[in-house]
């Protein structure tokens, strides 16, 4: 399966609500997550996505 730009975009889209609701989930366990932590986590996810895209993305040879 190729890692296309479109799939990357859709994954980014779905990561936003998950990131926003992360604080609620943490709240259930009495952990107060500051906004900056959420921003960092989302940023790390985006970085990971970019790395994966660089490795397996449209421009590179598909391993599958």
């Amino acid at each position: 399966m190729k890692f296309t730009k479109a799939r990357a975009l859709v994954l980014i889209a779905f990561s936003v609500p998950l990131a926003i609701e992360l604080r609620t989930v943490a709240g259930f366990f009495n952990v107060e997550l500051p906004l900056i932590a959420v921003a960092v986590i989302e940023f790390l996810f985006l970085a990971l996505l970019f790395v994966l895209y660089g490795l397996y993305g449209e421009g590179s040879e598909s391993p599958a």
Binding site: I12, A13, V16, I20
Partner: peptide
């Protein structure tokens, strides 16, 4: 469409 989705999530 993705901008709409993200904007609406916020």
């Amino acid at each position: 469409v993705i901008m709409w989705f993200v904007g609406m999530v916020f």
